[in-house]
Design a protein around this nucleic acid. Structure first.
Lengths: 242, 242
DNA sequence: CAGTGGTCTAGACCACAAC
DNA sequence: TTGTGGTCTAGACCACTGC
């Protein structure tokens, strides 16, 4: 009866240790790229055994929050291209390896959240949101049009069109200290509309892959709604089922 | 220089223990649903500590090969609907929960592998393959047409049309002792062709989600090539990125 | 060489299920 | 009560890194 109510669920010690460590990531005291204290040091500080700290660190590593390097130490995961590419970008050329797409921002403005946007982002309809429209190229071919929708309250002083980098999750991290930790995607096939046809240089009605993503931060709060329309002539969306 | 050549990679003890345990699954001495010996018993038999056995069992549990039940024991995972649904079937209704689809086999015949089929299944072009064409319903609506292609050599005496169950991976397991352990899927948006239109009752040209799957057994050998064409009017393909 | 993470061990105790 | 998996501890040794 310390802090949980309900059915007083049992929670192992390593889960509390994990929560404690995650707090350092959330409040920014452990920044991306930083070397965190060694297992032994953490065990001393938190008055548990090294094995318990290890178990907590292992679960965080499995969630891509930390990176462990034998002989060197444990580091806070960074949103560099290679990791984001691996973790959050599943579109790959039919032949050849995966590469990070080049982005061009078409429009970026602040507005009031629609009902769907509000529901996806756990806001109230009418709350201010930042919308970004951009196209993305893979191997020089424009294959993707994306609309991003962000809760404006968490992204103050959003930069202008040409100040938005390819890797926007890196911007989230460096500019506002927001770490994207997980995302849910829903895929459908849809016909290209007028705007799609213009942006992607394809006939109206061309089948497109529509990717609806809700991305969440370390605490599970929805931070981004992204709807991508994708030309899958020579690329595909890859999934591994285990 | 015992059994590995190359750079003499280091392989931890628990990995060898895992290999040993997986062998029981491959050779069928541990059948799906079976209770396997306790950690202590395995540790005694294999002359390692319980902790090492536990680590091996944990990795196998993570790969959905085993199911652990506190107080009861460790069991070999079964290909029941609920697990397959969770592990290998990502199409879910836009509203409401995921359900197992009803299948109707349209055609089933043996032929010679095309170049693409052979390459996907790691065969030689011309090798005998079994092809199965079926449609699948979700909530009474026909939403999926699938072509399965199996290496005939591993699936002797394939049953007739009406003897093929909804859950074909369960059939693989019970009839031939083949366990599907992983799969890779490639998704694209394509226009419905004549046959798609007929099978799915939709206009020619309707955007469909094309799912190209290669499924593999416990040893990583390709066992099934499956191409599904899916009407995504009221369903979607769900992916969680972590 | 010292310090880090990775593996392995042995033993204790807890939570859960079945009898 | 017994037996199972789940957690926690303490300590040993191995493999890798950098000084």
């Amino acid at each position: 009866m310390t802090d949980e109510n309900k059915v007083m669920e049992y929670k192992p010690l390593y889960a509390h240790i994990r929560d404690e460590l995650v707090r350092h990531l959330v409040d920014g005291s452990w920044a991306p790229g930083m070397l965190i204290p060694s297992e032994m040091e953490l065990a001393r500080r938190m008055k548990v055994s090294q094995g318990t700290v290890r178990k907590a660190l292992d679960t965080m590593t499995a969630d891509n929050l930390l990176v462990r390097k034998q002989g060197k130490g444990t580091f806070v995961a960074e949103p560099e291209d290679s990791r984001i590419l691996f973790q959050f970008f599943r579109l790959v050329p039919d032949d050849g390896p995966s590469v990070f797409p080049q982005s061009t921002v078409i429009d970026s403005e602040t507005g009031a959240a629609s009902a769907e946007e509000a529901s996806a982002l756990e806001l109230t309809a009418g709350d201010p949101v930042r919308r970004i429209l951009r196209i993305r190229r893979l191997a020089e071919r424009c294959v993707l049009s994306e609309t991003l929708c962000l809760p404006a309250g968490r992204f103050c002083d959003f930069p202008a069109h040409d100040q938005i980098p390819n890797n926007i999750y890196q911007l989230f991290s460096t500019r506002w200290g927001i770490t994207i930790a997980q995302a849910e995607e829903r895929l459908k096939a849809i016909p290209a509309g007028e705007e799609d046809a213009r942006l992607l240089s394809c006939p109206v009605g061309t089948p497109l892959l529509r990717i609806h993503r809700i991305a969440r931060d370390l605490e599970g709060k929805a931070v981004e709604l992204r709807v991508s329309h994708c030309l899958t002539e020579s690329i595909h969306y890859a999934v591994n089922l285990r």
